[in-house]
Structures are given as structure tokens and as C-alpha cells.
Design a protein around this nucleic acid. Structure first.
Lengths: 202, 202
DNA sequence: TTATTTATGTATCGATTGATAGATAAGTCA
DNA sequence: TGACTTATCTATCAATCGATACATAAATAA
């Protein structure tokens, strides 16, 4: 039961690191343009090892999506949820989006999920459900805090939590889009304070 | 000089229609996943004819981008510029975005340029400049009308035209993202009036 | 008519694609 | 030790990729 030793020859690579490397490759070139050769080079393991550990190219892709949604993708939301005040939450969310989409070392610009939506939804089986879920989850978590703040009296009773959650989320889409297209963090931060006011305006 | 007749065998296809068909193919599957076989099927002409008329796959891709930026891409901006009042302009822009990204017959969901940004910027030579220009042009045209309305006294002197132009533009990115991910026009239109207020708020 | 120019379709090129077979290596079990 | 299980790498598969050679068709020019 508590025996952690496994039968057979042990893995020579870290499953998590390999998955992140694959994600970076898919994120940089897109699903279709990323060849098995690219993946073996990025992950540091050979073809058959990939198939044995992660399944075929499509299954590997879906696993990188799940990994991203659980880790990098929600960093701005974590900042949002952990901030002291609502205003700091919104500000923290947007600054986190900017830094993650422009300054993340080793990672390509923009947002991995945005790339997935743009190219593989409807083309690669299993992507659509994951994207639908990722968007809904983000909307819900943002709206939840707004509702909490309403209950605490920090936001008026008629504050449209759902609308503003979607607005904030869409600001993020705009930012990752511009970031991918070459915008610098400085340029993106220009609108910051105006946008914070906008989201919280009553 | 005014002789319109050309030497040699005439084309059997309409160059414009073929270009739009190629764009739809690229938009649906993405640049890398769209094969020459896909293109010949979509455009109705055979491989060598494509190469003779449009150059190689990359050149054809760039030509579809230029075509889109000139036609479909700016439909919401045309609605924006042609509306009677500022408020109607913003409302018209957003409703046009929704209808174009969800109900355009024959065209895939979302926005072709958004797909280009997500996958081929930095990978296909010539795309980056076009995307940078497309975004700047849109921002500038939206801001121009806000400035006009300020001059007419319909908006306060301190109205942040640039910020709100970028905000409106980013709302569009959010919409095409959600649309591509499966959102219906109805769901997108839920936030419409709140967003119109938001963009014009002072 | 014949010469010239351009477009079209068939057939095909070498290169690369995703994926696998089979031999070998490295561990645990008895 | 030898049996068993799992992982790894080299070599290779058929299929498809983007792109082209070449012969033919259809127009104008002389």
C-alpha cells in the first residue's frame, strides 16, 4: 500500500517538466505547426517515450491544456482573489495579466488558451469543452468576489457582478491579444487606472 | 493604354472569390493545418494555378490577410463611423461585432485577424507588421470619432478618447474570443447596454 | 494561317509528417 | 541468480506535405 517503488525501469525525465516544455512548444508555434520532432527537441525525450507516457500528439496537447488551466492560466485570478480590497483586486488582476503575457521568461507572449481557442476549437476533439469550461470558471470566480464585496457593503447592491466580471475578463483578452501582437508592458499599463475605475464604476 | 484585353489564355476563376475562399479555409483550420489540398478544394482551382496567381502558400496567406483587413474586418468600424450619435456608434460597433462573429454565413466564428495573431505572428514572415497596423488603425479610427464628438461638445473636454477607443477595441477581442469558444449572440448581447455606458462614462 | 503568351490539369518530385516495431537497458520480484 | 515489468533509443513505416515539370488549351498579334 505505502510502497512507492514501481515495477520496471524508472523514468529518466520529469513528467511535469516535459509537459510544460510541450506546452511552450504548442504555444509558440500552434498545434498543427508543432511537429513530433519539435516536441522531442523541446521535451528532451524521444518519440516513443512521448507516446508511451502521454499518448499521441492530440492527447499530449489536451494534457498541456489541463496543466496550463491549473497553473499559469489562473495566476491573475489568484492575485485577484488574494488582494485586500476590491480595487486592489482589479488592479492586481490586470497588472498580473500584463506581466504574465509580456514578461514571463521562457514562455511565449500572450495566452496559451487564447491560442487554443483561435485555432483548435472545432478542429481538435476535446478542446471545445475545455475552453468553454475555462471561460466560465474565470467569469464565475471574478463575479464571486464582486458578490462577496456587495455582501460586505463595499459595493452597492445593484452592482452588476456578472457583467463586470465578463468585462474584466474581456479586458484580459484584449491585453493578451495586443501583447502577442507586440505591445510592450508599458503601453498596456497606460490604460490601467482608467480601466480599474471602469470595472468598479456604479 | 485603354486596351483592357490581355494576352494569353484568360483566367477561368474570379480572383476575389478564390481569395475569399482561401481566407475562409485559413480561418477555419489555421495556417499550418490548411494544406494545399484543402486550398485547391476550397478555391476550386488546382495547385499550379494557385502558385501562378498568388505565389506560394505564405504569399497567398498574406494576401488573404490584406483582403480581410480591407473588407470584413472593418465592418464594425464602418457601422461605428456611420452612426448618428456617439451612443449609437458604440452600440452599433458592438452589435456589428456580435453579428459578424456569430452569424456571418459561410464564415467561421470569431475573427480571422485574431486567429492570425494567436498563431502566425512571429512564425510567418510578414504577419507581424500587418497585425500591428491593423490594431493601430482600428484604435485610431475609434479615437478619431471620440475626438470629433468632443469638438462638437457631445463629450466632455477631458474624455479620454485613446483609452476608451482601446477599451472598445478590447471588448471586441473578448467578444470574438467568446464567440469562437461557442458563445451565442444572445449571451454576448446580454452585456451590451452596460458596456455602452461604460465606454462613454465620464 | 502561324507565332506568341498565358492558364490549366496530370503526374510527380524529395522532404517531412505522425506513428510504430523491435532490440536493448534498468529496475523490482521470487 | 533468473523471471518479469517498464522505459528508452534507433530505424523505419506509409501517408501526406508543399512545390514543380511538362504537355495541352485558349486567347491575342501579325
Amino acid at each position: 500500500m505505502n510502497d512507492t517503488k514501481k515495477l520496471g525501469r524508472p523514468r529518466t525525465f520529469d513528467e511535469d517538466e516535459a509537459l510544460m516544455a510541450a506546452m511552450t512548444a504548442f504555444w509558440t508555434k500552434g498545434y498543427a505547426a508543432t511537429s513530433m520532432k519539435d516536441l522531442t527537441a523541446a521535451m528532451g525525450i524521444s518519440g516513443p517515450s512521448i507516446y508511451s507516457a502521454f499518448g499521441d500528439k492530440r492527447e499530449l496537447y489536451l494534457k498541456t491544456i489541463d496543466r496550463y488551466a491549473d497553473v499559469d492560466g489562473c495566476a491573475p485570478i489568484v492575485a485577484f482573489e488574494g488582494a485586500a480590497s476590491v480595487e486592489d483586486a482589479v488592479r492586481g488582476f490586470l497588472t498580473s495579466v500584463v506581466s504574465h503575457s509580456t514578461q514571463q521568461e521562457g514562455a511565449p507572449r500572450g495566452c496559451f488558451l487564447a491560442s487554443c481557442v483561435a485555432t483548435t476549437v472545432g478542429e481538435v476533439e476535446g478542446v471545445a469543452e475545455r475552453m468553454e469550461k475555462a471561460i466560465c470558471d474565470t467569469d464565475a470566480r471574478l463575479a464571486a468576489r464582486f458578490d462577496q464585496e456587495k455582501a460586505l457593503g463595499n459595493l452597492p447592491n445593484d452592482f452588476p457582478s456578472q457583467d463586470r466580471a465578463r468585462l474584466l475578463h474581456d479586458m484580459r483578452q484584449g491585453h493578451v491579444h495586443r501583447s502577442r501582437a507586440g505591445w510592450t508592458a508599458e503601453r498596456l499599463l497606460d490604460d490601467l487606472e482608467d480601466r480599474v475605475k471602469m470595472v468598479l464604476m456604479t
